[in-house]
């Protein structure tokens, strides 16, 4: 499950041991395509990584804070510190490897 970020509130993300934030928008094709992939990964990595969805139109401040210039953008954080990020659609196997490398 991806938890939706509301009102630019990143408190929970910052408190999480390992968090993945997916910056997306309803009008973005690649975002729609990667959504089910992230959904599956959130189940696979349950208990290890907390997954969040962040609609950039609803959370403009959060998007600005992360310097989002292209979506989808997936940011991996450990205790609120940005560890790595990926931009654009990626096949599931690639994302899986990336997440494992960063655990």
């Amino acid at each position: 499950m991806l938890k939706e970020i509301l009102n630019d509130n990143l408190d929970e993300v910052n408190a999480s041991e390992v968090a993945l934030v997916d910056f997306n928008a309803t009008w973005c094709g690649p975002c729609k395509m990667i959504a089910p992939v992230l959904q599956e990964l959130s189940e696979e990595f349950a208990g290890q990584i907390d997954f969040y969805g962040c609609d950039v139109d609803e959370n403009q401040l959060a998007a600005q804070q992360f310097g989002v210039m292209s979506i989808p953008m997936m940011v991996l954080l450990k205790k609120g510190q940005r560890v790595d990020q990926k931009i654009g659609f990626m096949p599931k196997a690639f994302l899986e490897t990336w997440l494992r490398q960063n655990l």
């Binding site: 928008a25 009008w27 094709g29 950039v56 139109d57 210039m69 292209s70 979506i71 931009i87």
Partner: peptide, 13 residues
């Protein structure tokens, strides 16, 4: 990171 191929996709940013 500042280069894009789709104006209609990223315009809102």
């Amino acid at each position: 990171r500042g280069v894009s191929y789709c104006a209609t996709c990223d315009a809102a940013l």
